[in-house]
């Protein structure tokens, strides 16, 4: 039997050679744990992410917007499922994942702890929040763990409609009446900074980054992704005729990137630790939905048992 050091060297050699790790392959326990944490948090974010948008389904301004929003929310449920399935290939237990989310123990993207106050927020969320998520997810399509990478490929294919429908809402509002344009600007003002925070702490502060890069779970750092997002989004904001709420935003010829103002990391940590407007509400809503679905699950179990019994009797 090989000793553990050899196994770890073999593992890293595979990663370096761009060979994907598959469920039954040997992997360091820390790689498994890191992935379960990251994938399940990602899955929880998809599930919780349905709530701020679900909030607007019944109040969408027309049928076209309504079917798009419904389809988007349904996609998020699917994305949550792909991710939970990927986490299960590493030995995570689905019921436990649900319990951790519903009890408030599990983390999910802090962005969903902000409220969606107006219809324009559906535009800003699709454009900025999904836009930021896509930056991250495109990178994750090449992550070293096979099932996670495959889930990401599916998700990325579906996610691009989410961002485009959001931008279309922003475009319509910004070309509308003065009041509508103001709504769009207000939504941009509120969602801009939290969207930048979605990429996580700066590289200097990020505790998991270095190892995750070595294992190729991540391929770009938080700061690289954040910069990439800012660089592509500014032009899109200009096209809308809206102003990004950052007076320090300036093209830096030397760096070939935009410089931007200081992010309020105190706010970030306050919201991560439960101090956002919606933290309690999100978990409560999720837990309530799960509880109220219990009778459906029970009925499904009873039905399946009855059918199985019938099948046995018929065979006898």
């Amino acid at each position: 039997m090989k000793n553990i050091i050899n196994l770890e060297e073999d593992f890293q050699a595979k990663i370096d050679a761009e060979i994907k790790i598959e469920p039954k392959n040997w992997m360091p326990e820390k790689y498994r744990k890191t992935l379960i944490r990251q994938i399940s948090q990602h899955g929880h974010s998809e599930i919780i992410g349905m709530l701020p948008e679900g909030n607007w389904v019944t109040r969408a301004p027309n049928l076209r917007r309504k079917v798009a929003l419904l389809a988007k929310v349904q996609d998020e449920a699917g994305h949550g499922l792909y991710l939970y399935s990927a986490a299960e290939t590493l030995g995570a237990d689905r019921d436990q994942l649900f319990r951790d989310l519903n009890s408030g123990k599990a983390k999910y993207s802090s962005i969903f702890n902000y409220p969606t106050l107006s219809w324009a927020d559906m535009g800003a969320v699709g454009w900025l929040v999904d836009g930021a998520a896509i930056m991250n997810q495109v990178m994750l399509c090449r992550t070293s763990y096979g099932p996670y990478a495959r889930a990401m490929v599916r998700i990325c294919k579906e996610e691009s409609f989410h961002q485009r429908q959001g931008y279309e809402i922003m475009l319509t509002l910004s070309k509308g009446t003065a009041e509508q344009k103001e709504m769009a600007q207000d939504a941009l003002n509120r969602w801009w900074w939290p969207s930048l925070m979605m990429f996580g702490p700066t590289d200097a502060e990020s505790t998991h980054s270095e190892q995750a890069m070595k294992w190729k779970i991540k391929r770009k750092t938080n700061d690289e992704l954040r910069q990439q997002f800012i660089d592509v989004t500014i032009e899109q904001a200009e096209f809308l005729g809206l102003t990004i709420p950052d007076p320090d935003l300036k093209w830096n010829e030397e760096r070939g990137h935009y410089d931007f103002g200081a992010i309020d990391w105190d706010e970030f940590w306050r919201v991560v630790k439960g101090g956002g407007t919606m933290n309690k509400n999100r978990v409560k809503t999720r837990a309530k939905a799960f509880e109220e679905g219990e009778w459906v699950r029970e009925a499904a179990n009873a039905y399946a048992e009855k059918q199985a019994k019938k099948l046995k009797q018929n065979a006898a």
Binding site: Y82, S85, E88, R150, R154, Y303, A304, Q307
Partner: peptide, 8 residues
């Protein structure tokens, strides 16, 4: 393409 949980 993937997996899911179901009773039957």
């Amino acid at each position: 393409v993937g997996s899911l949980h179901a009773t039957d």
